[in-house]
Design a protein around this nucleic acid. Structure first.
Length: 555
RNA sequence: GGGCCCGUAGCUCAGAAUGGUAGAGCGCCCGGCUCUUAACCGGGAGGUCGAGGGUUCGAAGCCCUCCGGGCCCGCCA
């Protein structure tokens, strides 16, 4: 697909001509990586893929999407029989650019300083940067991603990038030219794209390289630039560019990392497309390293198609996701496709879970899928969703059922009690022992997600509903016949018999009752539900709805 | 000023590298079932593939122009 061939163009198309079989995108890219490796005659033991993890702003759902997709490629490469490793590279050498919400305003004094050298506002980690990246690491672990963590700061200090830095600085004129050709630059011509750290004020974004002295691996710099309203301290000094006394600008840093670590794949968001292009050229033309393959993924929008932004307050963090749906649902969403997964919304989490359940079920019924392509896509999607460790057999109950039950129960029940009650109801629903439900991890998680969902989003409010005359008569008659001492089965039978006797559609009859009861056209099995709610309470609810005009007669 | 992405059924999107009878899921309509479920089974309606032009025996796809939506760069990443 042309999109991910954007950077490294595969020359030898005929190579693949014979294999016209459609492939899942992760498999396809992995195969391309292998083909290219042969072509470049690059012999390395471990094929490394990379995902950059931000350390300056709070992690959001898109951040883990990047890592997840990179991890998918790692799995795909291993699936082809190669060793692979995911590098999660923390950008904790980046300077602080702005103060995120929730961070003290005084922190503006740290603007322009590397986030790894700024104290942790929450006091639990050794630095601001470490705190932020630990949040992301935690999320990645919850998602079941295995990775090797590299701190940018450590990378610089250990000299990991020294060879590349030296080469970039020795060729700084060429670097500047490439940047100008690709994206332009407002800096004066001949600018050295490197940030020395000012030894006096500690900032990196207020400095300017005056001279590069390659023989001594150092630069002369002046701290006289302005960044975000912060003026440099005016200090002039010299700094070694080896062992971490500064930082490459993004116009070259990716390239240095790729070359130093031997990265063969790294996904990127739409917002840094240009950056990738510049780095690809720098990598190829200056560092003699053929840049990694990549995919460009879209930014996430919320359900109203607005850009996710902190100021609107519609940010979704991985932690928030985990409150409403399982990690595997997120993995499925991210693996499903890599571009145009445009909107995402926690309110739609029941949908995502439903999709997961459907996927699992279909996986065990692959022969039913007619189209070969769809069959292959679903098969691989589910295998990747479960990280190649095996797709579980479908569980016999559904999240929507759990959600319906939780939604109609009082909100103030303690969680443990809620579990019991829900297990009780669901067991009637699906004819499973409550005990075996309670022993299931997935079931407990479902109740947890459902409770959080109901707390955050509630259920649809009953507005005014119109019910057909004949249906309403049937419900009337059903309500009249209901007796306090009726058991679940009796109630259930009564509902069916009433509908049949009065010759109304059973389906419509049930839907109408659920509308009255829950404001939605379906719900848990009626008998147990009414038993649980209480016959009297149901009768009162019904007559009150009639009196208040919430239920109207449609003729 | 420069650059990128997207536009295919009511909705979400496949299909585009390699041109060959327009697809799936959901929704909707009809029917079935041992008749509540974002459960199952069968069938159906629904698309000038954003517009126009070009190349071609043949274009959703390739080329050009335009329209619409979104994004990035010219601070930083």
């Amino acid at each position: 697909m042309r999109k991910f061939l954007l950077l490294p163009r595969l020359g030898n198309r005929s190579l693949m001509k014979s294999e016209k079989k459609p492939q899942f995108w992760l498999d396809k890219i992995a195969q391309d990586i292998i083909d290219r490796r042969e072509k470049l005659n690059r012999k390395v033991d471990v094929l490394r893929v990379e995902s950059g993890i931000g350390a300056s702003g709070f992690p959001h759902i898109g951040s883990v999407g990047d890592s997840l997709r990179a991890y998918g490629i790692k799995l795909a490469l291993e699936n082809l029989g190669y060793k692979s490793e995911l590098i999660a590279y923390s950008d904790d050498r980046d300077g602080l650019r702005k103060i995120p919400v929730g961070v003290p305003k005084e922190y503006s004094k740290y603007i322009g300083m590397p986030v790894s050298e700024i104290p942790d506002p929450w006091g639990c980690h050794s630095s601001y940067g470490e705190h932020i990246s630990s949040m992301l690491i935690e999320a990645l672990e919850k998602l079941g991603i295995e990775f090797t963590f590299i701190s940018g700061t450590e990378a610089y200090k250990s000299g990991l990038l020294d060879k590349q830095i030296s080469r970039l600085l020795a060729n700084s004129g060429k670097v500047d030219r490439i940047i100008r050709e690709e994206v332009g630059s407002s800096k004066p011509e001949g600018w050295v794209h490197y940030w020395p750290r000012c030894e006096k004020c500690g900032r990196i974004y207020t400095t300017r390289v005056i001279k590069v002295i390659p023989e001594e691996s150092k630069v002369i710099y002046a701290c006289d630039q302005e960044f975000k309203g912060i003026k440099g301290c005016g200090y002039v000094g010299e700094a070694s560019y080896l062992r971490g006394d500064g930082k490459l600008s993004w116009k070259g840093e990716f390239a240095a990392r790729w070359a130093a670590l031997g990265i063969v794949f790294e996904p990127h968001g739409k917002d840094i497309t240009d950056s990738f292009r510049v780095n690809a050229r720098i990598s190829r033309e200056i560092l003699d390293y053929e840049p990694p393959m990549t995919v460009m993924y879209e930014m996430f929008l919320d359900s109203t198609k607005r850009k996710i932004s902190k100021s609107i307050g519609n940010v979704i963090t991985p932690q928030m996701w985990m409150k409403f749906s399982p990690p595997e649902a997120l993995r499925m969403l991210m693996f499903k496709r890599y571009r145009s997964t445009r909107s995402i919304s926690l309110q739609r989490s029941p949908l995502y879970i439903n999709e997961l359940e459907n996927g699992v079920r279909k996986y065990h019924n692959l022969e039913r899928i007619r189209s070969e392509r769809d069959k292959m896509t679903l098969k691989r999607l589910m295998e990747y969703t479960y990280l190649m460790k095996g797709v579980p057999t479908p569980w016999p109950y559904r999240y929507t059922a759990v959600l319906n039950v939780v939604a109609m129960l009082p909100r103030d029940i303690k969680f443990d009690d809620l579990l019991g009650v829900v297990a009780d109801l669901i067991s009637k629903y699906y004819d499973i022992e409550p005990k075996s439900l309670l022993s299931e991890e997935m079931f407990r998680r479902y109740v947890y997600y459902a409770r959080n969902y109901v707390e955050s989003f509630g259920t649809s409010e009953i507005e005014r509903i119109e019910i057909d005359d004949s249906l309403l008569n049937a419900i009337d008659s059903f309500v009249k016949r209901l007796k306090n001492d009726m058991g679940e089965e009796v109630i259930q039978d009564l509902a069916f018999n009433t509908a049949r006797e009065l010759r109304v559609s059973v389906k419509a009859f049930f839907q109408a009752i659920y509308m009255v009861l829950l404001g939605q056209p379906q719900g848990p099995k009626l008998g147990p539900l009414l038993r649980r709610i209480g016959i009297d309470r149901f009768k009162k609810l019904y007559s009150r709805s009639l009196e208040e005009g919430k239920i109207a007669r449609k003729r």
